[in-house]
């Protein structure tokens, strides 16, 4: 009985120390941001018109092709190739505009509507492209093709949704590639900013590729002000909650940051986080399974040890 009391005292002081040093101190050091569940409600006002219209995918296709999107973006599923390679595109725009094949499933519809009409606002980078700076966001806004602009935008979105794979078919890797890969490398899963690095037969080819990556990074640095960090370990370095909130709105953590709000929907965000964990913590399932067995085994061992002790001590007390 006395021993249990002593144990309770030891556990009490250990837990107090733990609570103060971990949850409490971290709570004080890192500000907590509440997730808005990827609602993007700040865009409600600007997209009211578009969201009330029902889009038509066939008309949307013409609008996308003639309205300029494909001048910068490729749409591989519709056999629309990129007009230039990634390195050249980056030297013109600062970053390679992403392929739009799956944009209908990766991005939130409301966000897409806002993006098409006013990229800097949707991406929350207006602080970088103020009138005084004289700089324009590299993605030109869509000013309409003569009809009702809200209807036109709704048609385009309907088109993107019609060509995209379904949410079930969208893999974590695809979601990541669409939303993040043009800016971030993820070395532990073999990603450079130009995509997964292929294996080359000769060193010259390999080095030529590396050189292209460096060139691309230079453009990116000039555009973003710094090289976006490698994402290999970010899932663990930032933790799941913070990673999620950061994807939802980078400005909430790093005010004035150059990273745009990418505007993915909630399901895609979960997939991106899964992918980041695949890189940072690929053994998590194995760990959980083995951990459970080890705990059971330790409990068994403890029971045997208690019985043996009782046996030995019977003669002593």
């Amino acid at each position: 009985m006395k021993e249990l009391k002593i144990l309770a005292v030891v556990i009490f002081f250990t837990l107090v120390t733990y609570w103060l040093v971990e949850p409490y101190a971290h709570g004080v050091m890192h500000k907590q941001v509440d997730s808005k569940q990827f609602a993007y409600s700040d865009l409600d006002e600007a997209t009211k018109g578009v969201m009330s219209k029902k889009g038509d995918a066939t008309r949307g296709k013409d609008l996308v092709v003639n309205g300029g999107c494909t001048g910068c973006h490729s749409i591989t599923v519709a056999d629309i190739p990129a007009t230039m390679d990634a390195v050249t595109a980056a030297s013109s725009y600062g970053v390679n505009p992403p392929d739009l094949s799956n944009s209908g499933v990766v991005y939130d519809a409301k966000f897409l509507a806002a993006l098409i009409k006013n990229p800097a606002q949707a991406l929350k980078v207006e602080h970088k492209f103020t009138p005084e700076s004289g700089k324009m966001h590299p993605m030109v806004p869509f000013y309409g093709m003569g009809g009702d602009i809200d209807q036109e935008v709704a048609d385009m979105i309907a088109y993107f949704q019609s060509i995209a794979v379904s949410q079930d078919e969208l893999t974590p890797e695809m979601a990541y590639e669409n939303a993040c890969a043009r800016c971030h490398s993820m070395k532990y899963l073999n990603w450079t900013e130009l995509g997964p690095k292929p294996s080359f037969k000769t060193e010259i080819e390999s080095l030529t590729y590396d050189l292209k990556v460096l060139e691309y990074q230079d453009s990116l640095k000039a555009y973003m002000g710094k090289l976006p960090p490698d994402l290999s370990m970010q899932a663990l370095a930032r933790g799941e909650t913070r990673a999620r909130n950061f994807i939802e709105d980078p400005q909430s953590y790093l005010e004035g940051t150059a990273m745009p709000r990418v505007g993915v929907n909630a399901q895609s965000a979960e997939k991106i986080i899964t992918y980041m964990f695949d890189s940072a913590d690929p053994k998590r399932e194995q760990r959980d399974t083995i951990g459970t067995y080890v705990i059971y085994f330790s409990i068994l061992l403890a029971i045997l040890a208690i019985l043996w002790k009782k046996e030995v001590w019977r003669d002593l007390k």
């Binding site: 080890v294 330790s298 409990i299 403890a302 208690i306 002790k309 001590w313």
Partner: peptide, 20 residues
């Protein structure tokens, strides 16, 4: 025998930390 008993109980806690 008591050392080992305490150790075995401690190991449950230790492996809980290691894995989870």
């Amino acid at each position: 025998s008591k050392d080992i008993m305490v150790l075995a109980i401690f190991l449950i806690f230790f492996f809980y930390l290691v894995f989870f």
